[in-house]
């Protein structure tokens, strides 16, 4: 099994490389948004709304939301890459069909897509971080850990996204997870206000079922250099859920495409 997984990864990187090539070809449109987006949020929320908020748990509001901005970007980039973009490649461009006519298997194609989704998260986090550093709202050098962690968090969101892509009847139906799953997460994962001000049942719901909660938890520890044992819970949750959804995504995709 271990050996087989290794081979899967070897071939999966060729699929990953295809996506990297396509990404780099249009780098201008790809590299600009991650610079602009945190700037807008920082200005509007951090320095605009933030002036009315003294501090959250003793932390200045901009410093409180900075790790959430990175987490959200990590989520968006992996999730949208492995839903809409993967669906276009699978359904409209028939790219997956073309690839499985070569020695590469469908499992490896899906693994490569997920690895690429995670890589996009890593790229976006790497582009955002200098902006946040420039504004002095994240700690150094701890904040550099945000970059490798973005890949792990990206794997999580990419795997979940790929499950939706595998079962969606059409590209429009992907709006459901986008509005019903991603948007609530964007708001209720301890992003713009601490989870602790919500009723306890909702706190448990967020910790149990909203992946972004754990990603924000880890990133906030990193950028504020405040590590507590809770980080192990966050990392453990992410690792387990990623593994589960990764396996489900591959199984569902195989069922959809190999008939």
């Amino acid at each position: 099994m271990g050996l087989r997984l290794f081979f899967i990864t070897g071939y999966a990187w060729k699929v990953w490389r295809r996506n990297l090539d396509a990404f780099l070809k249009t780098y201008r449109v790809n590299f600009l948004p991650p610079f602009i987006e945190p700037l807008l949020y920082l200005l509007a929320l951090g320095f605009g709304l933030g002036t009315y908020i003294e501090a959250v748990d003793g932390i200045p509001y901009v410093r409180f939301i900075a790790p959430a901005l990175i987490s959200i970007s990590v989520m968006f980039s992996a999730f949208y890459e492995c839903t809409y973009s993967s669906f276009v490649r699978m359904y409209y461009q028939k790219t997956f069909d073309a690839i499985i006519a070569t020695p590469i298997s469908i499992e490896e194609v899906i693994a490569g897509e997920i690895l690429w989704g995670a890589t996009r998260s890593l790229i976006y986090a790497s582009l955002m971080l200098p902006v946040l550093i420039a504004f002095g709202v994240v700690d150094l050098p701890a904040s550099l850990l945000v970059i490798p962690f973005a890949f792990l968090a990206g794997l999580l969101f990419a795997s979940i996204a790929m499950c939706f892509t595998a079962i969606t009847p059409s590209i429009d139906a992907l709006n459901y997870p986008s509005y019903l799953f991603i948007t609530p997460m964007f708001l209720f994962s301890g992003t713009f206000f601490p989870l602790t001000i919500l009723p306890l049942p909702i706190q448990y719901l967020a910790l149990g079922f909203l992946p972004l909660t754990h990603v924000v938890g880890v990133n906030r520890s990193i950028t504020l250099t405040q590590f507590s044992p809770m980080i192990y819970v966050h990392l453990g949750w992410i690792a387990v859920v990623t593994a589960i959804f990764f396996a489900i995504a591959i199984r569902l995709m195989r069922r959809r495409l190999i008939v």
């Binding site: 060729k14 490389r17 295809r18 090539d21 396509a22 070809k25 461009q93 028939k94 790219t95 069909d97 073309a98 690839i99 006519a101 070569t102 020695p103 590469i104």
Partner: peptide
Amino acid sequence: VPQENNLDPDFTVYRNLLVYSRYFG
């Protein structure tokens, strides 16, 4: 040669062949 054209629209003619050759190692 499949029934449906599934060339990679993200790439040029040359790059299509190059990316494909990579799949074969």
